[in-house]
């Protein structure tokens, strides 16, 4: 089970910054919860640029991004 980080409510670029720090600690992968499409796109772009695969699951309001090497 991956560690989860909760970036809901954080404004740009904090979700990406938190993701960067989290994968620094857990290079195998993390789950990131975001609550807006901008953060979803930014975290996804950052993860892909960093060599991670991203799976996105959404429940309508929040999105859970699973980042795997």
């Amino acid at each position: 089970m991956f560690n989860k980080i909760d970036t809901r409510g954080r404004s740009c670029p904090e979700p990406v910054l938190l993701t960067q720090k989290a994968i620094g600690q857990n290079p195998e992968g993390v789950q990131v919860i975001v609550d807006n499409t901008t953060a979803r796109e930014n975290v996804t772009r950052f993860a892909k640029n960093s060599g991670y695969r991203v799976e996105i699951a959404g429940d309508g309001k929040d999105y859970i991004l699973t980042l795997r090497r």
Binding site: M1, F2, N3, K4, D6, L18, K21, A22, Q25, N26
Partner: peptide
């Protein structure tokens, strides 16, 4: 970093 996994992260 609020963690819900098994490790608490302080960066």
């Amino acid at each position: 970093v609020r963690m819900e996994g098994d490790v608490n992260l302080h960066v």
